[in-house]
Write a protein that binds this DNA or RNA. Structure first.
Lengths: 165, 165
DNA sequence: TATTGTTATACTCTATAACTATA
DNA sequence: TATAGTTATAGAGTATAACAATA
């Protein structure tokens, strides 16, 4: 049984040092609140290891990796996987295409469909981003054990898997 | 030991029904990606149970609850607790103050400091929001066991606790 | 000189509707 | 008539710098 080692005080001490810690016990069991808070250091890690060095936003990183792993993926599929609206996705892909890291190709079977693929430059940046994700993931281990990180990942996957409606 | 029951295929089936499931194995162990994905259904639940009925954004809900739990809380403290910049927080509080749900008062001891408190209308809406959070939390149990939800909360708290730098 | 909070402003991201083209 | 994707546009959220008041 993985047991987090934080005390009540630890959890509630969210104000900066030299400040009276805030009581956030009323939000302690609100899972959405905890997810939002956890997203903050997560994004910080991302920008340090991937975002700034490779000039990629989180959603761009996800897109590139999904395109790389899925030959002939369509925009529809990408939009559903990442919960992006069609217009939003179009603009995102426009920017990445202008940058020269990916390309769109009309499907021969259904001319409405656009297949997305990485360019060689896109392959390169995505490979480097995935490489950089390794030390990034190790950084989590500074405050999460290996077992805790695996458990957290597994539970979050279970949550994400059930997002319908 | 809590063990998530998803299969490899289950985890990777993120495209809609009738679509070829996307391979997202390359992102499986990227914790930040899983947090982002989990945030989607989480926000959806929030808007259904709290956001739409009470006309509150997630950050507004968090602010109101923290103000309610912490007498004489300052803007500085709120900003640090929720990682909000001072200008951003000012605008958020302006809007909530105009709406009549909270009020600011200059500290007598340090005239630079603003103390934030709820108005009676703010007390009312916050109480109702916290009440609505109970069925919202129960909704998670549709795809997470009690033990899993508790574990997830605990692990996320541990992550959020260490956000410094 | 440092801190708390505000104002002003520009930028980015997102949401919506209307549209094109294909099926 | 429905679907994939685009364009146009408005709105909301965020980031930055310059500022005022106080310590």
């Amino acid at each position: 049984m993985v047991r987090a080692a934080n005390t009540e005080q630890g959890v509630e001490a969210v104000a900066g040092p030299s400040h009276h810690p805030l009581d956030q016990s009323a939000l302690k069991h609100v899972l959405g609140y905890q997810i939002s808070l956890a997203d903050i250091p997560s994004k910080k890690l991302f920008f340090k290891f991937i975002g700034e060095p490779l000039k990629l936003r989180p959603v761009e990183f996800s897109l590139m990796v999904l395109v790389r792993s899925n030959a002939d993926v369509t925009q529809k599929q990408l939009g559903q996987a990442l919960s992006l609206s069609a217009p939003n996705l179009t603009l995102l892909l426009d920017k990445l295409e202008e940058r020269g890291v990916l390309a769109r190709e009309r499907s021969e079977l259904d001319r409405r469909v656009q297949h997305v693929r990485l360019t060689p430059a896109g392959e390169d940046i995505t490979r480097r981003a995935l490489e950089a994700s390794q030390p990034m993931e190790r950084e989590w281990l500074r405050f999460l054990s290996d077992a805790e990180k695996a458990m957290l990942t597994e539970l979050l996957q279970k949550v994400a898997k059930h997002r319908r409606g």
